[in-house]
């Protein structure tokens, strides 16, 4: 489904943010990336849909290397990759319904995108998706009036509107309260189990990774240090993932 091979990325030539990251994501599974802040989790996620252009490696999405695509092909590929952000990144002055409908604009014409020309079937689908995430009554609310948890659910509905094969979530619950966290994570879990969508999530909370993930990838200092089923994520493994890199190791990594 999605295979990342030998991904490496440096931001200013010398300091390496990622060194040789390889992993794969299976269809219909929740894969969680954990690791300390600054380990490179966000970089990995953004490299997948090429929001960050990586330096080296291969990103195979449905056997196509995302790095080799031209602009048009990349737009096409991106329109089938959902993305969910920590700050929701909705267009706040617009309504929830309009935001969800943005999800289908990637495959529509310029004219439709400019003048918000949607088919009735698309509008119906968007309303159904809002109902699915429990926001049927909020379809015509401006997004700036919604709570954090509600915004994130609109974000999920928007991603679903793309008919995605994979949804990338960059710290989706970092700004949410515990109750909203459960709602959002349950929803993501349900998408993988029942709709067969691959879900790749960056997380800080190990306990949530244990509850919801099928597959856990541990990242430390730009390297994969753990890659196994969730059951294998023991306390010692967690300590290892969050271990501070000693200065000698770090200099080795930077130079290498």
């Amino acid at each position: 489904m999605l295979t990342v091979k030998h991904l490496a990325k440096s931001y200013n030539g010398t300091k390496k943010s990622l060194t040789d990251v390889s992993f794969s994501v299976s269809p219909g599974e929740v894969t969680v990336i954990i690791g300390p802040s600054g380990a490179g989790k966000t970089t990995i996620l953004r490299s997948i849909n090429q929001l960050i252009r990586d330096d080296d490696g291969e990103i195979l999405f449905d056997d196509v290397d995302m790095r080799q695509l031209n602009r048009r092909q990349l737009r096409d590929a991106r329109s089938h990759i959902g993305m969910i952000f920590q700050n929701y990144n909705l267009i706040e002055p617009l309504t929830a319904l309009e935001n969800v409908l943005h999800g289908c604009l990637g495959t529509k014409s310029n004219l439709a995108g400019m003048f918000s020309l949607y088919r009735n079937s698309e509008k119906t689908e968007a309303l159904q998706l809002l109902q699915k995430v429990g926001l049927g009554d909020f379809a015509y609310q401006q997004c700036r009036n919604l709570s954090g948890g509600q915004k994130q659910r609109v974000g999920i509905a928007r991603a679903l509107m793309q008919h995605p094969k994979i949804i990338l979530c960059d710290e989706p619950i970092a700004s949410l309260d515990p109750k909203s966290t459960t709602v959002v994570m349950d929803l993501l879990r349900d998408l993988a189990t029942n709709d067969g969508i691959s879900v790749l999530i960056n997380l800080h909370q190990v306990d949530i990774a244990r509850t919801y993930a099928d597959h856990v990838i541990g990242i430390n200092n730009g390297q994969v240090v753990f890659d196994d089923r969730t059951a294998a994520l023991t306390d010692t493994a967690v300590t290892d993932i969050y271990r501070k890199t000693t200065s000698s190791e770090r200099s080795l990594v930077y130079e290498g």
Partner: peptide, 8 residues
């Protein structure tokens, strides 16, 4: 990231 074109 959703593949929208610039005019959109």
């Amino acid at each position: 990231a959703m593949g929208l074109k610039r005019p959109a």
